[in-house]
Simulated assay, not measured.
Amino acid sequence: MEPKIGITAENLKAVAHALNHILADEFVLYAKTRNAHWNVEGPDFHSKHLFFESQYEQLDEIMDSVAERIRSLGHYAPATLKSFLELTHLSEVLHEKNDGTGFVTELLNDHESIIMKLREQVNYFANELKDAGTSDFVTGLMETHEKMAWMLRAHLR
């Protein structure tokens, strides 16, 4: 049954499509953060291992909320690795060293890239697709990524 929430079916489809891309970005960032947690090496191993764990736990919650937002709008969330890799704008390839600083730099770049994408979409959802709820939701995601990026950036100072 289609949701009757004051947004046209066409706009709901467009919102879900855009959210699919966000979910894919979140999943790829989650996988990269898990990789950092599992594979970090160096004298700061223990602290970085715990730090990356806290970050991937936040990303897990974000992924769940994005998928649930897609479902609440009457669409299905992508849920395969293949679909995530097709939908994401991030690269799953690491470009930095396999140490704390390398992982922090890589993950910070990805968070900042996601922040810029989300910022571009806030007004798109509200003004073009007439979905203030998703606009507000995406603003919240952006703010969460800004805080996570700040935490990463603090490790590089």
Rank of each mutant, 00 (worst) to 15 (best):
G42A: 05
E41F: 04
R71W: 04
L23C: 03
N35E: 11
L107R: 05
H155A: 08
D25C: 04
Y30K: 01
Y76I: 05
F137C: 10
L81H: 04
S65A: 11
H155D: 08
E10L: 07
S47A: 14
N123R: 13
L118M: 10
H89P: 04
L129F: 10
E143F: 07
E92W: 02
R119L: 09
F125Q: 08
N20L: 02
H89D: 14
M1S: 09
R34I: 10
F45E: 09
D110K: 07
L87D: 00
N35G: 07
S91G: 03
A126C: 09
D110R: 07
M142E: 12
S91T: 14
N109E: 14
I115V: 13
L12W: 01
L85C: 04
L90D: 00
M148D: 03
A14D: 15
N98D: 14
S47W: 05
E112R: 14
V40Y: 01
L90V: 05
D131F: 07
D131W: 02
G102N: 05
I5W: 06
A9Q: 12
T33M: 00
P3A: 01
M63F: 06
L118P: 07
K82V: 13
D136T: 12
N127L: 15
A24S: 04
F103P: 08
S113Q: 15
E106G: 08
I114Y: 06
R69F: 09
N11G: 02
T139S: 11
T101D: 11
H89L: 10
V66G: 05
R119T: 12
H37G: 01
R119F: 09
K130I: 07
E92I: 14
E10S: 10
M142D: 08
M151S: 01
T144S: 10
K48E: 12
K97S: 13
R153C: 03
D25M: 02
E41Y: 09
H145C: 04
T105Q: 07
F84M: 03
M63L: 13
A36S: 03
Y30E: 00
L12R: 13
T144G: 04
N123P: 07
K4V: 15
E41D: 11
L90R: 03
S113L: 14
P3K: 07
A14M: 13
L23G: 02
N123W: 11
S54F: 00
N109G: 09
T88Y: 01
R69Q: 12
A154L: 00
T144L: 08
W150D: 03
Q58D: 10
E26W: 08
L141I: 12
D25E: 02
K4I: 15
E68Q: 07
S72G: 00
Q58I: 06
N39H: 09
K13Y: 06
K4M: 12
R119K: 14
V122F: 10
N11K: 03
